[in-house]
Amino acid sequence: MAERPAPRPLGSAGVSPASGQDARATGIRIEGLRKRYGSGDTAVDALKGVDMAVAPGEVVGLIGPSGSGKSTLLKCLGAIIEPSAGRMTLGTQTIYEDGWRIPDLRALRRDKIGFVFQAPYLIPFLDVTDNVALLPMLAGRPNAEARQRAHELLGALDVAHRAAAMPSQLSGGEQQRVAIARALINRPPVILADEPTAPLDSQRALAVIGILNRMAQQYQTAIIVVTHDEKIIPTFRRIYQIRDGRTHEEAGEGRALD
């Protein structure tokens, strides 16, 4: 296993370095999370008390039928929409408890949460290196330092040879690996992956899940993978099934990946 990376400097999300390290030590925990859309007679409860915990270095699957609340949960976890009630903890840092506890959600997303989307959504006018290095560069870190980190990650994901290519010149699998590198660049304690294998064939889909597992181990990152993909579900050791706004934890097959 790769050496654990050094702790990150203080982000601007209001999370101290100590709590950031704690976040890495204990991953993400959700207790009784609720989300209600609308009010009165037209109110819809999308989440009715979700409980979830993911440890550092662990990759869990989040599955469920359409309309079950997967996307709502992902948006709450990603600090994109505000839950109605409950508690979310990143390490020992409570980020939500009946209201956000973090003043700058944008910085929280930038520094503490990584995102991998169904489509890679790389910035088409930046080359691979700058797509990955964009976040730290936008945060004001020196370009050379950000690009150095990007190169390291691209090397770890076996796409270093495409560092100077534009996104349009990459295959689907390469694009997704670059997107994973982008999610990892700030070494966030949590990565949220929304159907990351949907556009890929079986072989590439399994390769991407393999990479996510490897990165989770290497960077001690908790990864939540939202998926419908039957090909990859057997690879998870733990699965959260979401039905009617509630999660049910199940043991997965944990099938070994080549």
């Binding site: 990603g78 994109i80 944008r106 910085a107 929280l108 997303r109 930038r110 520094d111 995102f115 989307f117 959504y121 910035i123 088409p124 976040l135 936008l138 945060a139 982008r182």
Partner: peptide
């Protein structure tokens, strides 16, 4: 792309 930029904290 703008949505992605905003989501990742730009």
């Amino acid at each position: 792309e703008i949505a992605v930029l905003k989501l990742i904290g730009t």
